[in-house]
Simulated assay, not measured.
Amino acid sequence: MTPFGARLRALREAKGVTLQQLAAALHVSAAYLSALEHGRRGRPSAGLVHQVNEYFELIWDDAEEMVRLARLSHPRVTLDTAGLSPEATELANLLAARIRALPPETLRAMRRLLGD
Rank of each mutant, 00 (worst) to 15 (best):
T2P: 08
F4I: 04
R7S: 09
E13P: 03
E13H: 08
K15A: 11
K15C: 02
V17D: 03
Q21E: 02
A24F: 11
A24N: 08
H27K: 10
A30K: 10
A30E: 05
A35T: 03
A35L: 00
L36T: 06
E37K: 03
G39E: 08
R40N: 15
G42I: 08
R43N: 13
A46D: 06
A46V: 05
H50A: 13
V52K: 01
Y55V: 09
F56E: 15
F56S: 13
F56N: 13
F56C: 15
L58K: 15
I59K: 12
W60P: 08
D61V: 11
A63E: 09
M66Q: 11
V67S: 00
L69R: 02
A70M: 09
R71W: 14
R71E: 04
L72T: 00
L72R: 01
S73Q: 06
P75Q: 07
R76F: 03
V77W: 14
L79A: 08
L79R: 10
A82P: 06
L84K: 13
A88R: 06
A92G: 00
L94D: 05
L95Y: 04
A97N: 02
A97Q: 08
I99P: 02
A101K: 15
A101W: 14
L102G: 07
P104N: 12
T106S: 14
L107H: 15
L107V: 15
L107R: 15
R108F: 13
